[in-house]
Each structure stands twice: as C-alpha cells, then as structure tokens.
Simulated assay, not measured.
Amino acid sequence: MLREEHKQFLQSLQQRQEVQAVLVLPDHVKVPPFYERAGYLVVVNGAQNQAGVRQVITEEKVIWEQKVSAWELEKGLVQGLDEKLVTWLQRGEVLWDKDDFIYRLRQRLSKLPESLQKRMLFKEYSRLLHAFQETRDYLQEGMVLDAYHALLKALYVWAKWIVFRAGEQPESALWTQVKNLDPSVYKLYEELTLNHEELEKRIELILLPMDFFLSSRLKESVRYLLEVMETRTSPWKLHELAEHTAIGESGIELSLLIEKMVQRSLVCETICMNTDDQQSREIGYIPSK
C-alpha cells in the first residue's frame, strides 16, 4: 500500500521503465543511513553500477532512495550479500514487485546454497584467524587498545561465521541474530564491551575460547579451500592459490591459514622446482591423504 505522504514520489517511480521493485522499511527497522527519515529500496534493471543513495524532497518531506540493480542482487545470492541489503530484502515491505522478482528472491534467500555457505565459512574463518593473531600480537606488545579494537573485529567475524553455518545470511542487526543462534558467543561480546573488569584481562579471557574454536572448526571451515586444491594432483604454490579465481576475489590472506593447516596435517609441504631457475626452489602444498 502506498504511503499517502509519499504518493507523488512513488507514482514517479512506477512510471520509470527500469524500476523492477520498490520496498520500504517498517518504522521499527533501522538501517544506516535511514534512521530519521523514510527510506525506500528501489530495484532497477540495468548495468551493475546502478547502486547509489540519493535524497529526494517531495511535498516538503525528505526521502532516502537506495537504488540497487537486480543484477547486483542476483550476484549477491551467489557470492554473498551486504548485511544492509539482506535486512532490506527480508524485513522490507514490498510496495510493488514486477514479475514477482522480490518474492522469488526471498525464496532463494531463505535457503543458503551449500556452495556459498562453504565459501563464506572459509572466508570468515580466515578473517577470524587473522584478527585473532593480530589481537595476540598487539597484546604481547602492550598495545591494549589496539588489541581491543582487533578483538572486536574478530568477534564480529566470528558472529558472521555462526550465521552462515546456520544457513542464514547476516543482517545489519548481527548480534541480535547471534544471540538466538549461539548465546555463548553473544555472551563473550557482552563480556568484552560491558564488563568492568580490567581491559587486558577481558581480552585474555576471550582469546581462550576463540583459540579453541579456531582449532576445533578448522577442518570444517577450510573445506572450500581443500576442494579447490583437490582439483589437481600437483602441488600448489602459495601465489597460485592466492591468484585462483575462486579464492583471489575474496581478498584472503592465505599464509597464516596455510601455516595452521600444515600444523594440523590437513596439507603437506613439498618442494617445487622453479622451471625458470633450476637453482631456485619454492614450497608447495598438497592436501593430505
């Protein structure tokens, strides 16, 4: 149903041929930057660079318009959607929807594809490992505030891992999701941010269960990487893995992750002869049998 005070704006959208669907957020759902004023998600057909935010004044009222292309949403279902867009799609009120595009999108969004789930578990685990190591390094150097910032980042990534493992897409209100899915991790977040104990002590206490998680969930989380490595029998050099299309686009730092996989005997190190320079040798990696 059209909002009466925004009728002129919405009617102008309906007249635009490229508009595929329009959604509005209920008043109780807030997504940045749409806090104080009404916000609309406008899905358009066209090139991938259609995304953008603009402010529109109509009848002396200011409206936020968030535009996104249908192509970008389709891509997100395969590669992962931004948390704010997930909130729009799952909680927004559909004002109109050509060819049931949003209806079909929501059906697909309700079930996370296994291929995307494996990829995102791998991505978030590798980010968590990096943030965990960064936190420990800062702490050892006595840089407590930097360690706190890194640990907050680590907890946020851990929370996303939990949501993906549950077969859901992370929303902008991420900790509300995690409170229902894994109260113990939510409790750790509360301990870090709300507890009045000495900050360094809080950080040290949270690193312990995080370290256990990283060890116990390694094999499950790197299944995506192992499947890539199993596509050939010859060893993989580190730069080859980093440049692989299935991995490179994620911007993952592999060195720390591979090192942990070697320690846990998930992959084996071997020596590769450099064909350009017979005197130069490079370490390669193959999945363990």
Results as ranks from 00 to 15, higher is better:
122 F>E: 03
266 L>W: 04
266 L>Q: 00
175 W>Y: 04
80 G>I: 02
56 V>R: 12
168 E>P: 03
54 R>P: 05
81 L>K: 07
89 L>K: 03
76 G>E: 07
148 Y>Q: 09
282 E>A: 09
90 Q>M: 14
26 P>L: 03
131 A>P: 04
246 A>H: 09
6 H>F: 12
72 E>G: 02
178 V>W: 12
208 L>A: 13
286 I>R: 00
289 K>H: 14
239 H>W: 06
30 K>R: 14
123 K>I: 00
89 L>G: 05
39 G>Y: 14
100 D>G: 04
79 Q>V: 13
94 V>W: 09
39 G>R: 12
222 V>Y: 03
288 S>C: 12
169 Q>E: 15
179 K>A: 04
70 A>D: 05
272 C>S: 08
51 A>D: 11
226 L>E: 11
289 K>E: 15
44 V>G: 08
223 R>G: 11
253 E>W: 13
254 L>R: 04
265 S>V: 00
163 V>K: 06
148 Y>R: 11
175 W>N: 00
2 L>D: 01
178 V>G: 10
193 T>E: 13
114 E>Q: 13
12 S>H: 12
204 E>D: 06
85 L>F: 14
33 P>I: 14
14 Q>G: 01
174 L>S: 06
56 V>D: 01
87 T>F: 01
247 I>F: 06
122 F>M: 00
266 L>C: 02
90 Q>I: 01
258 I>M: 00
